[in-house]
Amino acid sequence: MKLIADVLGSLGKYFKYFLVLNFLLFLFFVVLSVYAQFSYPHYISNFIFIALAVLELSLIKFSDYARKEYLRNVYTNEDVALAPPEEVNHQDVRYLMFRRRIIEENIIEEDIVSMFDIIAARLEMESSVGVYTKGFLAFLGALFIASYSYVIDFVGEENVFGLVLSILAAGVFVFFILSLMPSKIEKIKELKYFLSLYKQELLSS
């Protein structure tokens, strides 16, 4: 959440309002697309889906533009050059935020080396916790499959496709947001990766 807050805080007022409006319209059209399956003719539903797709694509595109603006506004070219090459899940931005914090805390190479054993132990502990999470998700998947025929009877076969599209559109956006907030085990792995990068920077300086 800090990443989202920092990026929004670095944007201009009007661009920030535009992003928020785009997000609110997207949520409105997600709800409207579900409602349309039961209340509107199919040609109106098709128009709603087109609008929903345009809003989602623009939201993702402008969110990525906002990330790049944040990099330009907050960090120097020298800082950005030290970021990892991966832009997946905004790792470049998160590393620069991490690097700034670790410099402020005066962390040295010896401190970093001593952290690796702790990180390895924490990873092992979190891996065992993940087994229960996977089991619960498997249970939810089985429950959804078991109730599939009931859902079809409830919404009607002619509305299933539209409903799936609505859920898919919402799911893609939720996945995009979740990519900004890694899971605990992803954070630990990322911490190890970031510490290794910073250690390499210290060794080469």
Rank of each mutant, 00 (worst) to 15 (best):
K2I: 10
I4D: 00
S10D: 07
G12L: 05
K13V: 07
F15L: 07
F15H: 10
F18M: 09
V20Q: 09
L21C: 08
L24E: 11
L25Y: 12
L25E: 08
F28H: 11
F29T: 13
F29K: 09
V30L: 14
V31K: 11
L32G: 06
L32F: 15
S33Y: 04
V34Y: 13
A36K: 08
Q37E: 14
Y43F: 12
S45F: 04
S45T: 13
I48N: 01
L55E: 10
L55P: 12
L55Q: 13
L57Q: 04
L59P: 12
F62D: 03
F62W: 15
S63K: 03
R67G: 08
K68N: 09
V74I: 11
T76S: 15
E78I: 02
D79Y: 00
D79G: 01
A83Q: 06
A83E: 03
P84H: 01
P84S: 01
P85G: 02
P85Q: 00
H90S: 02
D92F: 00
R94Q: 02
R94A: 00
L96D: 02
M97P: 00
F98W: 04
R100L: 02
I102T: 04
E104W: 07
I107W: 00
E110C: 03
D117V: 08
A120T: 08
R122F: 04
R122I: 10
L123V: 05
M125P: 02
S128V: 11
S128K: 15
G130S: 14
F139I: 14
F139H: 09
A142T: 08
F144R: 08
A146M: 13
S147Y: 09
Y148Q: 04
Y150M: 10
D153A: 08
F154Y: 12
V155R: 07
G156N: 03
F161M: 14
I167L: 15
A169W: 03
G171L: 13
G171Y: 14
V172S: 06
F175W: 15
F175R: 15
F175N: 14
F176C: 01
I177K: 06
L180T: 07
M181R: 09
I185L: 07
K189S: 06
K189I: 03
E190V: 00
L202H: 04
S204A: 09
